[in-house]
């Protein structure tokens, strides 16, 4: 899967959790100064046994690359693809920096350091801490705003809307609010 597409050498699993929010995994990677990668599998995959997953690589706890296995997109677009409702299974793998260096020479998959925390997890404080930990040469501006990229994906938005509509109707029935529906 992802690791092959990204040509990531297999790392050593150092943490595996189901988390309600990607911020937890990003925070853990930053805290332990992870050099390696994280595989984030959203709820949908956990429940449906699909293979959609997001892969983020890290250098000293700071995100470098993002890739999404199902959409085959990288960089900020991959973050938008990964934005599914939690929970997520988050597995962190450690790699030797020398094994990771050639992989990181893939500018088209790169994301700005604070972007996963800010846009994927909606956690500006974590984003600030991540940027503070990032080397200066990584602090350039992003080309494409992932929020704008997310909003460009009409099929995804329609899926969110359809799911919410269905949930609203199911819950109205549960709560005895059917008569209020239009």
């Amino acid at each position: 899967m992802s690791a092959e597409t990204l040509r990531l050498p297999r790392g050593e699993l150092v943490r595996s959790r189901v988390v309600s929010d990607p911020a937890t995994a990003l925070g853990a990677a930053l805290e332990r100064g992870l050099t390696g990668y994280a595989v984030l599998e959203p709820q949908e995959t956990l429940l449906l046994d699909g293979d959609a997953a997001g892969v983020l690589t890290f250098d000293d706890g700071v995100p470098v690359l993002a890739y999404h296995t199902e959409s085959d997109r990288g960089g900020p677009a991959a973050l938008a693809d990964l934005a599914e409702p939690g929970p997520y299974r988050a597995d962190l793998y450690a790699l030797d920096a020398t094994d990771l260096a050639p992989v990181h020479d893939t500018p088209e998959l790169e994301v700005p350091p604070g972007m996963p925390a800010e846009r994927l997890a909606g956690d500006p404080d974590l984003a600030d801490r991540t940027r503070a930990a990032a080397p200066d040469d990584r602090l350039d501006d992003a080309d494409e705003d992932p929020v704008a990229s997310f909003l460009e994906d009409e099929a995804k938005i329609e899926a969110i809307q359809a799911e919410a509509r269905e949930e609203a109707r199911e819950r109205a029935a549960e709560w005895g609010l059917d008569d209020e529906l239009v």
Binding site: L79, A121, L151
Partner: peptide
């Protein structure tokens, strides 16, 4: 942010 917009779309539905 993406999570906030997702929530907002849900509120609207």
């Amino acid at each position: 942010t993406i999570p906030s917009l997702s929530d907002g779309l849900k509120v609207q539905e």
